[in-house]
C-alpha cells in the first residue's frame, strides 16, 4: 500500500504540468469557443525563447522566465488579434483548422530557427528527493504542485469574484449579447489567448527538463492535456487542474503496475468510461447550445 501511494505522489508532478497545459486550452476555449491545437507548438516556442535568454543573453533563470511569460502573452495576443480575428465569423471548424495549420507551421519554423536537436534547460528547483511523511518527493515536484494549486486558485478567484471574471463568464455564455451589454469582447478574448499561451508556456518550461527541448516536444504532452481538459469538463478551470492531476497520477500508476506502452491506451479507456458516466466531464455543466 505504501508503494501505491508513492506512485500516486510520483504522478503529481507531471499532473501539474498537464494541468497547466489543460488550463491554457480551456481558458482560450471558454472565451473564444476555439480549441487551439497549436497551443503545444506555441508553448514550445516560449520555452525555446527561454533557452535563448538563458544561453545567449545570459539572463538568470527567474528573469528569463518572467520575460518568457511576457513573450508568451505577446504570441497569444498576436495569434488572436491578428490571425484569428480575421476569421472570427467563420465556422468554428474553420478556425480550428487554422490552429492545426499553425501547429505545423510553428513547429517547422521553430526547427529552422532553433534546430531539431534536443536542448536542455534546468529544472526550477534541483536537489534530491526529500522525505515528506515517509514518502519521497523531489523539491521540483513540490514546486510544480504548489505552483499549479496556487495559479489554479488565483484563476478561480478572478473568474468567480471579480468583474473581469464576470465579463469573461458572460462572453463564454454568449459573446454577441456580452458585446451588446457594452463589454469589450475582443479585448477579453485576446487577453485570454495571451494568458492561455502563458499558462501552456509554463507547462512546456516545466516539462522540458524531463523530455528534452525540441520543436515537437509538446506533441506528447498535448494528448495528456486534452485528456485532462476532457475529464475536467472542457470549460471548467478547476476541472482542468483536477483533470491534470488525475491524468498524471493515473498514467504513473499504469506505468508502474501495467506497462509504459499501455499508458495512452488505458488513459483513453478511462476517459471513455468517464464520458459514458458523465458526458460533460467531472466538472462540466451541461452544454447549452444557442442555435
Amino acid at each position: 500500500m505504501h508503494n501505491f501511494f508513492q506512485f500516486v505522489i510520483g504522478g503529481l508532478g507531471f499532473g501539474g504540468i498537464y494541468a497547466f497545459a489543460a488550463l491554457g486550452l480551456v481558458l482560450i476555449f471558454k472565451t473564444s469557443g476555439v480549441v487551439n491545437f497549436a497551443f503545444g507548438a506555441m508553448a514550445t516556442v516560449v520555452t525555446l525563447t527561454l533557452w535563448s535568454l538563458l544561453n545567449h543573453a545570459g539572463l538568470p533563470f527567474a528573469a528569463a522566465w518572467v520575460l518568457a511569460m511576457v513573450i508568451a502573452m505577446l504570441i497569444g495576443g498576436f495569434t488572436n488579434g491578428v490571425l484569428m480575428r480575421r476569421i472570427e465569423r467563420s465556422a468554428v471548424l474553420v478556425q480550428i483548422v487554422l490552429t492545426l495549420g499553425l501547429l505545423i507551421l510553428i513547429e517547422g519554423l521553430a526547427g529552422v530557427l532553433w534546430g531539431y536537436g534536443p536542448k536542455s534547460i534546468p529544472q526550477p528547483l534541483s536537489g534530491n528527493p526529500v522525505n515528506v511523511a515517509s514518502f519521497l518527493i523531489t523539491p521540483n515536484d513540490l514546486f510544480i504542485i504548489g505552483l499549479t494549486v496556487g495559479v489554479g486558485l488565483l484563476l478561480f478567484v478572478v473568474f468567480e469574484w471579480t468583474r473581469v471574471g464576470l465579463a469573461m463568464r458572460a462572453i463564454a455564455a454568449d459573446r454577441e449579447v456580452a458585446s451588446l451589454m457594452g463589454i469589450r469582447t475582443n479585448l477579453y478574448v485576446t487577453g485570454s489567448w495571451a494568458l492561455g499561451t502563458a499558462l501552456s508556456g509554463i507547462a512546456a518550461i516545466l516539462v522540458a527538463p524531463s523530455l528534452g527541448l525540441e520543436p515537437t516536444m509538446m506533441d506528447q504532452v498535448a494528448v495528456f492535456a486534452f485528456a485532462a481538459a476532457i475529464v475536467g469538463g472542457f470549460g471548467s478551470l478547476i476541472g482542468a487542474v483536477v483533470g491534470g492531476f488525475l491524468i498524471g497520477v493515473a498514467s504513473n500508476l499504469i506505468a508502474a503496475y501495467v506497462s509504459t506502452n499501455l499508458q495512452l491506451t488505458l488513459i483513453f479507456a478511462v476517459i471513455v468510461a468517464v464520458l459514458y458516466v458523465r458526458p460533460d466531464g467531472l466538472f462540466g455543466r451541461q452544454a447549452v447550445s444557442r442555435q
Partner: peptide
Amino acid sequence: FNQLTVFDNLLVGAD
C-alpha cells in the same frame, strides 16, 4: 447568460 445567476446577469448589465 444561461450559466450565470440572475444577479450576475444583472451585474453584467452594469459592466
